[in-house]
Simulated assay, not measured.
Amino acid sequence: MLSESDISKFENTIGYTFEDKSLLIQAFTHSSFVNEQKINKKPDYERLEFLGDAVLEMLSSEYLFKKYPDKKEGEMSKIRASLVCEPALAFDAEKLDIRHYMQLGKGEEATGGRNKESIIADMVEAVIGALFLDGGIEESKKFIYKYVLTNEESMQMFSDSKSILQEIVQGQNMGQIRYEICGERGPEHDKIFDVCVFVGDKNFGEGSGKTKKAAEQKAAYKAILELKKIK
Results as ranks from 00 to 15, higher is better:
residue 2 L to W: 03
residue 3 S to F: 04
residue 4 E to Y: 10
residue 5 S to F: 10
residue 5 S to H: 08
residue 6 D to G: 06
residue 6 D to W: 05
residue 8 S to D: 12
residue 10 F to W: 10
residue 11 E to V: 05
residue 16 Y to P: 07
residue 16 Y to C: 08
residue 17 T to W: 11
residue 19 E to L: 11
residue 20 D to R: 09
residue 20 D to A: 10
residue 20 D to E: 12
residue 20 D to Y: 04
residue 22 S to Y: 09
residue 23 L to H: 06
residue 24 L to K: 08
residue 24 L to C: 08
residue 25 I to K: 11
residue 28 F to N: 02
residue 29 T to Y: 03
residue 30 H to F: 09
residue 30 H to P: 00
residue 30 H to K: 03
residue 32 S to Y: 13
residue 32 S to T: 12
residue 32 S to H: 14
residue 33 F to P: 01
residue 33 F to D: 01
residue 34 V to N: 01
residue 40 N to V: 07
residue 41 K to A: 11
residue 41 K to L: 10
residue 43 P to S: 09
residue 43 P to W: 04
residue 45 Y to E: 06
residue 49 E to A: 15
residue 49 E to F: 04
residue 50 F to G: 11
residue 51 L to Q: 13
residue 55 V to Y: 02
residue 55 V to L: 13
residue 58 M to E: 14
residue 60 S to L: 02
residue 60 S to K: 02
residue 62 E to L: 13
residue 62 E to K: 10
residue 63 Y to D: 00
residue 65 F to Y: 14
residue 66 K to I: 06
residue 67 K to H: 05
residue 67 K to S: 07
residue 67 K to I: 01
residue 70 D to G: 05
residue 72 K to R: 07
residue 73 E to Q: 14
residue 75 E to G: 09
residue 76 M to S: 04
residue 79 I to Q: 00
residue 79 I to P: 01
residue 81 A to E: 10
residue 84 V to G: 06
residue 85 C to G: 08
residue 85 C to H: 03
residue 85 C to A: 10
residue 88 A to S: 15
residue 91 F to Q: 06
residue 95 K to V: 13
residue 96 L to H: 09
residue 98 I to D: 00
residue 98 I to R: 03
residue 101 Y to E: 00
residue 107 G to M: 05
residue 107 G to D: 07
residue 108 E to K: 09
residue 108 E to A: 11
residue 110 A to M: 15
residue 112 G to W: 12
residue 112 G to P: 07
residue 112 G to Y: 11
residue 115 N to M: 08
residue 115 N to H: 13
residue 116 K to Y: 03
residue 118 S to Q: 11
residue 118 S to K: 09
residue 119 I to M: 00
residue 120 I to Q: 00
residue 121 A to E: 01
residue 124 V to W: 02
residue 124 V to L: 05
residue 124 V to R: 01
residue 130 A to T: 05
residue 130 A to R: 05
residue 130 A to Y: 04
residue 131 L to F: 05
residue 131 L to H: 10
residue 132 F to A: 13
residue 136 G to C: 14
residue 137 I to R: 13
residue 138 E to W: 08
residue 140 S to V: 14
residue 142 K to T: 14
residue 143 F to I: 04
residue 143 F to A: 03
residue 148 V to M: 15
residue 150 T to I: 06
residue 150 T to G: 13
residue 154 S to T: 10
residue 155 M to P: 01
residue 156 Q to D: 04
residue 158 F to K: 03
residue 163 S to I: 06
residue 163 S to A: 08
residue 166 Q to K: 15
residue 167 E to M: 11
residue 167 E to W: 03
residue 169 V to T: 03
residue 171 G to R: 06
residue 176 Q to V: 11
residue 178 R to E: 15
residue 180 E to Q: 13
residue 180 E to V: 11
residue 182 C to M: 02
residue 184 E to N: 09
residue 184 E to Y: 04
residue 186 G to A: 08
residue 188 E to K: 13
residue 189 H to Q: 15
residue 194 D to R: 06
residue 202 K to F: 09
residue 204 F to H: 02
residue 209 G to A: 08
residue 209 G to D: 00
residue 216 E to A: 04
residue 216 E to W: 01
residue 218 K to N: 01
residue 218 K to A: 01
residue 219 A to R: 06
residue 219 A to S: 08
residue 220 A to L: 07
residue 223 A to K: 03
residue 225 L to A: 12
residue 226 E to R: 14
residue 226 E to M: 10
residue 227 L to F: 13
residue 227 L to C: 12
residue 228 K to H: 05
residue 229 K to M: 15
residue 230 I to C: 07
residue 231 K to V: 15
residue 231 K to G: 11
